[in-house]
Amino acid sequence: MSVGDFGFFVICLTAIVLLAAQAVVHPSEFAQILVFGLADGAIYALVALGYTMVYGIIELINFAHGDVFTLGAYVAAAVMGFFAGTSEDTFSVSNLVALLVTFPAAMLLMGAVNITIERVAYRPLRNAPRLAPLITAIGMSFLLEGIMFVWSGPFTVHVPDLLPHGPGFNTTIGGVFIEFKDVFVVVAAAILVSLLAVFINRSKLGKAMRATAQDRDASQLMGININRTIAATFFIGALLAGAGGVIWGLYFNAITYNLGFRTGLVAFTSAVFGGIGNIPGAALGGMVIGLTAAFSDAYIGSKWTQVVIFGILIGVLVFRPTGLLGMRVPEK
């Protein structure tokens, strides 16, 4: 065991012991926070996957990704507005129909948006100085935020509360208050991540993605269409981000145009935390960051959460630069 691994191990152990102490003293409160953290972490995981996939394949921190996520939530709010007969008070069939239409609509639209961004802003710069695409990514982030800002101003946008909620859709297990929504978020995220994992590991396109991430030139020689593979990566990342946006909207019901900035930063941190380029790592990283934020809010104070998250980030990079599960980006 190297010094770095030992330091990492000590930090993790300390955190676990401290949390366990809380769990023993206030078990129900601890479990409740665990539920919140898991739900938030599930959404971070969905966004983190997009960062990790894009970084894995073209080594670009896609700053616009967080805003694609937010745009997904905005689109969801707009699409849900078209459905008459939906109700925020009782769950009806029209709510279900609205949800079944909103998810694919927002996901596919975001996929299209992200492919366009890649085509317009990143592909022409693939051979430019390395920082040029980073600046266009920042520019695209401002551009997307600008679109949402023009759309509805600086105000909070309300996303209809269409999921079943209220009496009958929540339960208290051992002092822990669980809503249907909490379960929905975690299950939906788990399904999406599993589908992605199967796709990456089993499908031909998934194999092409992995090959391109490993060695772009070699895979090109093997007859892989690089442009198409990269576009597909952006598309799939945006599908997940779009779904994440819809889920976020349904879960919190309030979104603002600049939500993606901070969510993106946290999701990117999750991706690094799990080992950038590593798909299960990003999902795990999202969960860990979600839990960390929830526990830090509760036990340390909200005003320290930012310091805790980024402190962990720096600590991980210093002691274990490959992240939790190891990175899958070859040194070039």
Binding site: L259, A294, D297, K303, T305
Partner: peptide, 21 residues
């Protein structure tokens, strides 16, 4: 007492829970 920053927080539930506790 506690404070938050808009750019950093979207989920206040853990905080509210500790208030309640």
């Amino acid at each position: 007492r506690d404070s938050y920053k808009k750019e950093q927080t979207s989920d206040w539930r853990s905080k509210l829970l500790t208030f309640k506790a």
